[in-house]
């Protein structure tokens, strides 16, 4: 079963998204968060070392999917992956999914035991699933 990492500029947002994801996944899926800067939890920003710790917290052989909010959270996540040993890095994936929808979908499908690539594919499908569709 894969692990999930929630990356956000805001520690509060990361915690809230993790809470949502955990509700969808139940207890079996490891979900960690990396929000805000290390020195000041209230300061907005992302930090590669914090993300690295979050990956190690939920590390498993099935892989780890990272979900980021916007902008430099992607860069920080890339740097975190570069710091990992090669055999771990190969099993980590940055998702293109939107953070909230992606985390909800990824958590649910991770809990169904789906592999990393499948979970990411269904999370990224959130990009083309509007909230207001189908309500005629």
């Amino acid at each position: 079963m894969i692990g999930l990492v929630i990356v956000s500029h805001s520690a509060k947002l990361a915690e809230g998204v993790r809470e949502l994801a955990a509700q969808m996944a139940g207890d079996e899926v490891g979900i960690s968060q990396a929000g805000g800067l290390p020195d000041d939890a209230q300061a907005l920003g992302t930090d590669a070392f914090k993300i690295l710790s979050a990956i190690e917290e939920v590390w498993c052989e099935d892989g780890v999917l990272l979900l980021m909010d916007v902008g430099s959270s992607v860069m920080s996540a890339e740097i975190a992956l570069e710091m990992l040993p090669e055999q771990q890095r190969r099993k980590c994936k940055l998702s293109n999914a939107p953070l909230v929808e992606g985390a909800i979908v990824a958590a649910l499908h991770a809990s169904l035991g789906e592999p990393l690539q499948s979970v990411n594919a269904v999370a990224e499908a959130a990009l083309s699933t509007p909230k207001l569709a189908n309500t005629g």
Partner: peptide
């Protein structure tokens, strides 16, 4: 959702399901 006269969605997708 017959009450909204919506078209059918795939209920193996949580995001499509809540679209109802």
């Amino acid at each position: 959702n017959l009450s909204r006269n919506s078209s059918a969605v795939d209920i193996k997708s949580i995001l499509q399901l809540v679209q109802l």
